[in-house]
């Protein structure tokens, strides 16, 4: 099963545990400046939002790279930067519509999320469940459930739901009648 990072900004408190976990896994130091996942604070709105690479299927960064330094990891679906191949030309950073591939001046290479090879540290470190690692096919499931739950109410059709025995979902006449 292919998995993906699922980000739920409404659960984020802005603590940066994810950034520290990411930077520690990748650099050996707690260093939010080197994190591949970033938490943004929208102060005036009282809102926090984590953001990182979504691992596009048709990955623009991968297609743009002139030296084929970005490759598909078949096991995880992530697009990984081969550091020893990367020439630091930054074309991928321009190609990425989301800004999640970034150049690192210290090393002269680009870095991006590689899902930690299938065990992302950011999701393990998140204390509130704002970052989870779930089936890629079901990342919208919880939001669908939330909307589904609201649906009858927003439609205003049945403010007092009928009792269960009165509900005939498929309108099939009950057997043994008359």
């Amino acid at each position: 099963m292919l998995k993906a990072l699922k980000l739920e900004p409404e659960k984020c408190t802005g603590c940066l545990q994810c950034e520290m976990a990411c930077s520690f896994e990748n650099t050996g130091a707690f260093n939010p400046a080197k994190s591949r996942i970033k938490v943004f604070t929208f102060h005036d709105e009282g809102r926090f939002a984590p953001y990182t690479c979504t691992q596009c299927d048709e990955a623009w960064c991968m297609h743009a790279c002139p030296v084929e330094a970005i490759v598909l990891n078949m096991a995880t679906g992530s697009k990984d930067v081969l550091s020893d191949v990367c020439v630091g030309c930054k074309v991928c950073t321009i190609a990425c519509p989301f800004g999640t591939v970034n150049y690192e001046a210290d090393t002269g290479k680009v870095v991006k999320c590689d899902l930690c090879g299938g065990d992302p540290w950011c999701s393990k470190a998140c204390p509130t469940g704002a970052i989870t690692y779930v089936s890629a096919d079901e990342s919208g499931m919880e939001r669908m459930r939330a909307w589904a739950q609201q649906a009858p109410r927003t439609a205003g059709a049945q403010p007092n739901p009928p009792k269960a025995k009165e509900v005939q979902v498929f309108n099939i006449p009950q057997q043994g009648g008359h």
């Binding site: 408190t13 545990q17 520290m20 709105e45 009282g46 204390p127």
Partner: peptide, 12 residues
């Protein structure tokens, strides 16, 4: 509006 954390705080 919301609760917010300081750096590294898991209490928030």
């Amino acid at each position: 509006s919301t609760n917010g954390a300081c750096f590294a705080c898991t209490i928030a």
